[in-house]
């Protein structure tokens, strides 16, 4: 087993990394950089999950997020007017309200974490954890697992139907109204 001080050090590195990169997501001009910062944040959380003994979840999180963030970067480059962030932009609204809400959420949840009284019943060794999860997935929670699968399938079908050129009801181009684009200066102001 890895000695505890090493685990502690790793946790602090991962936690600081997750929070800093998570914050950087909203503080960078380039969309691709934002996606990569978010991926870094997820990777750090994946690392913490592994430290906590939930190896399977940590690795699955990494596996999932790598693909997801690549798609996210591509989607942003596709649709953003200024994906490289060449022109400085502040694409935020209600900044103050949002900051207060974010801080309030943090304080409330942290208070719960600090003040809450959680039972001290540690989980078993990782090997057992993975095995137990497998048995749970295909045993008692089979219904949940299958529901998740069906949900994903219907999501796939729904997403294709929404995004496709031939939309849910006929061609997406028919009968659509294109809004007048506001002058760009107004957006930046």
């Amino acid at each position: 087993m890895i000695p505890t001080p090493l685990v502690d050090a790793a946790f602090f590195v991962f936690a600081a990394g997750a929070i800093v990169t998570g914050y950087r997501v909203f503080r960078t001009d380039s969309m691709v950089r934002a996606a990569f910062y978010l991926l870094a944040s997820f990777s750090a959380v994946g690392g913490i999950l592994v430290l906590l003994g939930s190896e399977f979840l940590g690795m699955v999180l990494l596996l999932m997020m790598a693909g997801e963030m690549l798609i996210m970067a591509i989607v942003m480059v596709m649709y953003m007017m200024n994906p490289a962030g060449l022109n400085p932009m502040t694409m935020v609204h209600q900044n103050r309200v949002a900051a207060v809400a974010g801080l309030a959420a943090f304080l409330a949840l942290a208070a719960v974490g600090l003040l809450g009284d959680f039972p001290d019943r540690p989980a078993p060794q990782p090997a057992l954890a993975t095995e137990e999860l497998g048995i749970e997935l295909l045993g008692d929670s089979m219904l949940v697992f299958q529901t998740a699968g069906v949900t994903l399938l219907s999501t796939m079908i729904g997403a294709v139907a929404i995004a496709g050129r031939r939309g849910r009801s006929g061609s997406a181009e028919d009968g659509s109204i294109e809004p007048a684009l506001q002058p760009d200066e107004e957006d930046a102001a």
Partner: peptide, 20 residues
């Protein structure tokens, strides 16, 4: 790793991040 297979797959998925 008990989840060596998943870990390897995660590494493979990250290759595309490196290349991108």
């Amino acid at each position: 790793a008990d989840t060596g297979f998943v870990a390897f797959s995660a590494a493979i998925a990250f290759v595309m991040i490196a290349v991108y």
